[in-house]
Each structure stands twice: as C-alpha cells, then as structure tokens.
Nucleic acid binder design. Sequence first.
DNA 1: GCAGCCTTTATTAGGTGCTATTAAAATATT
DNA 2: AATATTTTAATAGCACCTAATAAAGGCTGC
Lengths: 203, 203
Amino acid sequence: MEKNLSKEKRQERIKEKISTNPFLSDEQLAKIFRVSIQTIRLDRLEMGIPEMRKRVITLARNASSKVKALNKNEIIGDLIDIDLGKSGISTMHTTKDMAFGKNNIVRSHYIFSLADSLAMAIIDSDVVLTGIARLRYKKPVYSGQLLVAKARIATKKSNKYLVSVHIKCNHKEVFTAKLIMVSLEQKSNNSTFNIDNQKIKEF
Amino acid sequence: MEKNLSKEKRQERIKEKISTNPFLSDEQLAKIFRVSIQTIRLDRLEMGIPEMRKRVITLARNASSKVKALNKNEIIGDLIDIDLGKSGISTMHTTKDMAFGKNNIVRSHYIFSLADSLAMAIIDSDVVLTGIARLRYKKPVYSGQLLVAKARIATKKSNKYLVSVHIKCNHKEVFTAKLIMVSLEQKSNNSTFNIDNQKIKEF
DNA sequence: GCAGCCTTTATTAGGTGCTATTAAAATATT
DNA sequence: AATATTTTAATAGCACCTAATAAAGGCTGC
C-alpha cells in the first residue's frame, strides 16, 4: 500500500491510520507500510500508542459510558436553577456532533430537546408529556456556543401546564417556545389517554 | 462472591454479569462464581456467548458506527419515499433508549426529530433551517413501535416553505405538525439572517 | 575507507486470554 | 450399583502483544 516513507512520515501516517481505524493490528500495519512488525512496534512505542487490544477496550469503555450517560440523562442540558412548579434555568454546550457538517448550524431538534426537557423538569409531577408546542427559531446557533434556557409555567389548568421557554445565546434570543405539557398522574389511565385539541392562548 | 448455584442459575447470572460488564474475563468470572475456568468456558459455549475480547470488539465497533451514523445521518429515520419539492415518507423504529425508563414512552424530541428532518429532506435546497413549528402530540408512543411520517409542502413563499407532517403508529395518528422551513441559499448571508416573526396561517 | 550514528529487522522468552480436545474426577439420578 | 450429568484438569495451539538483546543496513563526516 504505502512504501518508502521516511520514519517521520511513516509515524504520521500510522497515527492517521490508527485514528481512522483503531482495529488495525501491528501485523496489518506492517503489511500496509511494507515494513517489519518490529518497526511498527518501535513506532508505536515512540509515539506512545497502545496496542490494538487496549485501544479497542478504551473505545468500548468510552462508548458504553456515553450510551449510558445518554440514557441516564432524562434531562437534556444542565439544570442550573429550578423553582419546582414555577420556573427553571438550564444550559447546554453545543458541540460539533449536534450540528450539520457543512455549516456548523446546530440542528433544531437539539434546541427543542433543551426546551422540552426543561419544561418537563419544572413541572412537579412524575409523568409529564408534551402535548402541544409552538416553536420559534429566531437565529441559527453555531456549534461551540453555549445556550441558556429559561422556562416559566405561565398557566395551569387541571393537569395541563402552559410553559414558556426562552433560549439565549450570547445574550441574544435564538429560540422561544410555548409548550402545553400534560401531567399523567395516577388518576389518568393510558387506554383513554387523549390530549384535547385545545388551542394555546396568548401566543 | 456468589457460590453453590445450580448450573442453570449460574448460567443465568453469568449472562447478567456479562451484560452489565462485558469486560469480564473468564478468569474473573471463575473467581466470582467460585468455579473453575473450564466451567465458565463450558457455560459460555452452551449459551453461545463469545469470549471477552470479541465482545469488546463488537462493542467498540457498534459504538463507533453508532456515533458515525448519528453524525453522518443528517436525516433521522429512514427515508422511504420522496418527491423532492413536494412530499416524502420516512419511518423510524423506536427503541428503548429513545424512551423514558419508567414508562417506555418515547421522548417527544425523537418524534419531533423525525418530523423535522423529513420536512428538511423534502425541500429542494442545500441549506434548510426550521423557522417556526407547531407540534401536536396526540397519543403517547411506546418504545418498540414503528412510526410512519408523511410530510407535504403546503405552500411556498420565496424562501419559506410551510410543511405539514403527520406521524402514524399502527394506523393511528400520534403526532401532527406544521413547520415553516427557511431555505438559506447562496443569496442569503448569515450576518443578517433573521427569521420573520410571521404567523402560520390555517393552523 | 571506515567509524559512528540512526534505522530497521530478527530472535527469543514471556504474558494474556482465549479455542479445542481428551480425559478423569465429582456429583446426581434412576 | 450403574448410569448420567456436571465439573475440573491437562495439553496443544493461536492471536496479539511486551521486553530485551542483537545484528544488519544505510548515511554522514572525517
């Protein structure tokens, strides 16, 4: 595949190869670069790259902890302040993997998630679902920026809450939403669950 | 740790142990269950559980492909049919990790994502952003169910599209939305980007 | 030319975590 | 007691490595 590279260049390419495919064994790398296994091992040693099996283990560990974190976090973003039943503030650091590759604009559903789960969090009830939502994306958010979401319960009627959420980025409003959240306490039963086609007032 | 279990119970427990911690080697398992390594290996053989190193490799592979898929897939769900500039259909298999642990109800933002990215997909433009959205969650969706989303461009005014999306589950409508999508073609420039506070008609 | 250097390759011993096979104990069942 | 099941042991071999030692090859400067 690749051959007659200087030591320096080879080590560079090995680094690249391994980062794109961490499952490559020394033997495979040796074939790719047309050098002996020992050379590859010397290179790894010099660069401090661990053996394939250890690389795979760290990969798997990181990955499984990531998945767990995603599942554990019933709330998206970090709850900063909460006044249960009234209002709350949460933040989210936007990252590259939340955005479109080509323009780094954060995908809308991440912003919605932040608003939606904050709205859920401030309601003092075990089971809360989103009923109706009106979202307004005002400005594009670029990955890397910090979002600050503020939510407030505007009105409450029986088991329905109208929550308004404002999300800011650098002190500029980038998103607002009004959400009707429905709390499903012990009283309500699932078979007859049905959200009224009620209109949102004052929107 | 655990001892004097019947073969059947031990195998059950081994399965559990491995699923919670796939990094356990046969030696470690042997110590935990106070049996010989050979017994553990026989158990794995009978249950068809691969060796630790192979488990770790599949873990790492799945994990890295998951991350890549999430990043690569600009669209959430599977596009089934598309009539660019007019309409489209996509589906999504809901899984446990999309739902709340306690009641298996799929979180609202996954449903929104399906609708939003389908709306984005049917618009014949490179850069499309969500402007305003009205969402109506009609029935809770439980993990494991298949969602079918249909979207249609209702009206188009210059670079703004009104898209209606209907999501069904078992032929019952569980979600509807109207989205105003904004296409940012070469003409528009980012520094002056600003979505009008325009109202959605016929909602 | 060749001594001194870096680079590359080879060799050997050892380690981990396994598979696969054969066989012998230990325990349970009839 | 005879038979069957379960458990353990022992052995050979494999993939993929570390660690250490040594030798071969190439380049540089004197």
